[in-house]
Design a protein around this nucleic acid. Structure first.
Lengths: 332, 332
DNA sequence: AATGTGTGTGCATAGCTATGCAATTTATTG
DNA sequence: CAATAAATTGCATAGCTATGCACACACATT
């Protein structure tokens, strides 16, 4: 009774209702049987006291906590925001809670994971680039499922869900070729993004297969500004490519703005542009950016399925979801 | 020993290290004293077993859980994304965890709060419009602090942090008047957003004080599409206003696109536009939208300060943070 | 020597709920 | 009505860590 402001407990409710604590427990957990009469008394007492069931003791007894740790990047990137939205929705529909960490560096990631583990989360979903091999190893020993969202992971015991980046890259190339482009450009994502590399892989290999070996490219970091800078660099010397594929939408939008406003390049007349992610802004009138839509809702559902499956099989799974090219005016 | 896959406990570590469980606890909680020697043995044993401290028992004993429930809206709105980012950052710096719920309806909000309470969160932060009076009452009885972020709440026991919407509205009006505008327009936010109403309040009152009583207005719901639709409506009859203030950026961007692309209206020559939130996209070359920057980082810090203060005083607090007008090309 | 001061250590327990088990009541059936 | 089945109820306990308490030991101070 140290804590004067403690919440009412099931025992408090039981006392007030004149029943046993077990009855209260069974009333709220809906397991076992309670007579209508008892249930009514319990509910009345609980209402009166403002009783809130306490999930913690059950977790301590080894039940699932129904909490998932979600580690993600900076929310400036609308892609992460959508991922968070989709996963949170899907999880909450199942009555699961989401413990979120927004993280910059690898170090912070390890830290975030360790913190989350203290609360005995059921699983960890990472929408970030890297899980240290050391972290992966230490995690897999705990038997906690880990899913890398939108990032290929070959760490043992780590599952992953990805859009089919490579195929999309090939499609982008094909689409641009069909439009008659002869010279091509690509704006890379950050070094440590396997997803961006796969997009490049598909794009460049397809072009090579069709006789194009010289692709102008510049590096970005997935931000609008970096896309703008990359465009400047690509067009600095000569007329620039006629077909430009960007590793994500935000960079594509930056590039488009710079091309039109600063360099006076016409889109799609002078250059066709394709992005990746189908950000909301891509559909805006000012851009009409062709883009690959990652079906994030499906990917979220796949993630849950993997978690469910892992519980019984203890086997990690890699799943790929196709991305759909939405051709808009920027490549018409 | 039912649960074969249970995580190692402090007792396991103690046994392996040949010390008492208390020693393990003291090693990791850094309270009480442990000799260098003992600590070393404990750490070694913990490493070997992959021990992770368990936060739950301490919470059950009445310690703070260090978890905050954050209830927020759909992440399509970049404003919510930024709020989540800022709050998560600020909290994590203090070693606090964030339990997130994304929510649509009021009903879902009550539900999300109840779910979070089961985990004994220390506080609830809502970035959403409405907390039912009933919910507020029931919460205030628990003694759990509730902070409404970016929403005025007069529910008893509910604190709030807001940007100074009304002053900003007045500034917007003044800014547009200075530019020589004679006719004014406003795009409203959704009905249930007190913040949007305050912006309108400041805007319209200032104009009235200066002899302008006829303001063209249309209603939106904070989305890009609704902004576009509102612009169409405003310009349907006649030439439209010369100064347009929008309750948020997303609607302003939609309006700008429709004005330029569909209606052939020049910005800022024919109409000056101002938004609210200073979304990333507002700074993009294609828009250069003048906007009020809500200092979300400061608001996040204020939120934490309120929580801290509430713990001792049990008094709810209302705090207002000024918003800064960033004048860009859209109103130059 | 005696007293005080500090540091390290272990024991035992509180905190709250779910659940197996046994006891009791109620319903069903022949 | 008897007998069996089913439903309801309460008791007691596990689950894991932090912490008050007591004890042991090492010094330092008088």
């Amino acid at each position: 009774m140290k804590n004067i402001h403690r919440l009412p407990t099931s025992t408090d409710v039981a006392r007030l209702a004149g029943v046993s604590q077990s009855a209260v427990s069974r009333t709220f957990s809906r397991r076992g049987s309670v007579s209508e009469q008892t249930r009514a008394k319990v509910v009345a007492a609980a209402d009166q006291l403002g009783y809130r069931p306490n999930a913690l003791p059950a977790i301590m007894q080894g039940q699932r906590s129904q909490m998932i740790a979600l580690v993600t990047g900076r929310m400036q990137n609308p892609f992460y925001a959508r991922v968070l939205q989709a996963l949170t929705n899907a999880l909450q529909q199942q009555g699961q809670q989401v413990l979120v960490s927004c993280v910059d560096s690898d170090h912070a990631l390890d830290d975030a994971i360790n913190q989350s583990m203290r609360y005995r989360v059921d699983a960890i979903v990472s929408a970030l680039a890297v899980i240290t091999p050391a972290t992966a190893a230490s995690l897999s020993r705990t038997g906690i499922p880990v899913v890398a969202f939108n990032n290929v992971q070959n760490a043992p015991g780590v599952s992953s869900v990805n859009s089919d980046n490579e195929t999309a890259g090939r499609q982008a190339a094909a689409h641009l070729m069909t439009r008659g482009c002869q010279h091509f450009g690509f704006i890379h994502g950050p070094q440590d993004s396997p997803a961006a590399r796969q997009r490049w892989q598909g794009f460049s290999v397809y072009l090579a297969e069709h006789g194009v070996n010289d692709i102008a490219s510049a590096c970005g970091d997935f931000s609008y500004q970096s896309g703008a800078a990359a465009a400047l660099q690509l067009w600095r010397e000569g007329s620039g490519p006629q077909g430009l594929f960007c590793a994500n939408d935000l960079m594509a939008l930056g590039a488009m703005d710079t091309l039109r406003q600063t360099l006076g390049v016409k889109i799609p007349d002078d250059v066709a542009v394709i992005g990746y992610d189908n950000t909301d802004a891509s559909a805006w009138d000012a851009y009409q950016l062709s883009s690959f839509d990652q079906d994030i809702e499906t990917m979220a559902k796949e993630t849950l399925a993997i978690l469910e499956h892992y519980r019984s099989s203890k086997q990690s799974i890699v799943r790929t979801v196709p991305a759909l090219l939405l051709a808009r005016a920027s490549s018409a």
